[in-house]
């Protein structure tokens, strides 16, 4: 089966409708909300799998392709968290974020051929990108939990902490796999490349959040402000960095 960006709209519409229906059912306290939402996740994954099969390489190279993974992970993680913690804000938030990134892909698909340049042909390619996208999704859920404490009370600080701790650790593992890969491809494990510097900045700010939480547990507003700044840094690392002058020299620019 040949599945390309042209077919994406159908999978996307079905997924989004299932996500909305699942969210709606959970809000009405009806049964099956999680299952319907989960079917949306499965539909999305089906597109990624078929698209991968058609391309003959992992769909992880372009911005459009990484957004696919982000939408998939964000919907999957919010579902898992909803099953575990039952917080009402999780499914609408997951639906919203996954839909936004899906819409960006529909409007600006950045269609690419199956060609993968030699520098990306490595066993580290898939783990490096997947771990980062997973981490970005977990950290987004962490920020939303953090924001929710402002309205719903401090008991939500626990999920915010757990998610940020896990997300920051994944961020670190993503960075370390990147370092190992860089040594193999470029000769140095750290090239002071713009994307690398922003990744380090992002990680350091998230680490600051974790230290604020363990040392000053009562300074919640300071912690949430730090979490927000860290999330902004993450957005710059992911795509914002491409708009800075430093990106011209970057080794991480793959969409020509």
């Amino acid at each position: 089966m040949i599945i390309s960006w042209d077919n994406f709209v159908w999978f996307a519409v079905i997924s989004i409708l299932l996500w909305i229906a699942g969210t709606f059912l959970s809000f009405k306290r009806e049964k099956g909300g999680n299952i319907i939402f989960g079917l949306g996740v499965v539909t999305y994954l089906a597109f990624i799998a078929l698209f991968w099969n058609t391309l003959g390489r992992a769909p992880m190279r372009t911005m459009g392709e990484t957004r696919l993974w982000y939408s998939f992970f964000i919907s999957l993680i919010t579902l898992i968290l909803h099953i575990r913690w039952h917080y009402k804000f999780l499914l609408p938030f997951g639906t919203l974020l996954a839909t936004v990134f899906t819409m960006i892909n529909l409007l600006k698909p950045e269609i690419h051929s199956s060609i993968l340049m030699p520098s990306l042909q490595s066993v580290w390619f898939i783990p490096h990108v997947t771990i980062y996208m997973l981490s970005y999704a977990v950290l987004a859920a962490g920020l939303i939990s953090g924001f929710a404490t402002l309205f719903k009370g401090p008991e939500l600080m626990n999920p915010a902490d757990q998610l940020t701790r896990i997300g920051t650790s994944l961020l670190l593992i993503g960075m370390l796999t990147g370092a190992i890969w860089a040594k193999q491809a470029w000769g140095t494990y750290w090239a002071w490349d713009a994307k690398e510097n922003w990744a380090a900045v992002t990680w350091l700010i998230y680490v600051t959040y974790l230290h604020i939480r363990s040392r000053y547990p009562l300074k919640r507003n300071l912690a949430i402000a730090t979490l927000f700044i860290a999330f902004l840094a993450l957005q710059i690392t992911w795509y914002g960095v491409n708009y800075f002058p430093a990106a011209k020299k970057s080794l991480h620019t793959y969409f020509e």
Binding site: W192, A194, N197, V201, L204, T208, F244, P245, A246, K249
Partner: peptide, 17 residues
């Protein structure tokens, strides 16, 4: 830590080494 973060941000924006 803040100084290091700021220096990395300057590098990350301007590309200065």
């Amino acid at each position: 830590t803040t100084i290091i973060v700021l220096l990395l941000i300057i590098e990350g924006i301007t590309g200065m080494q």
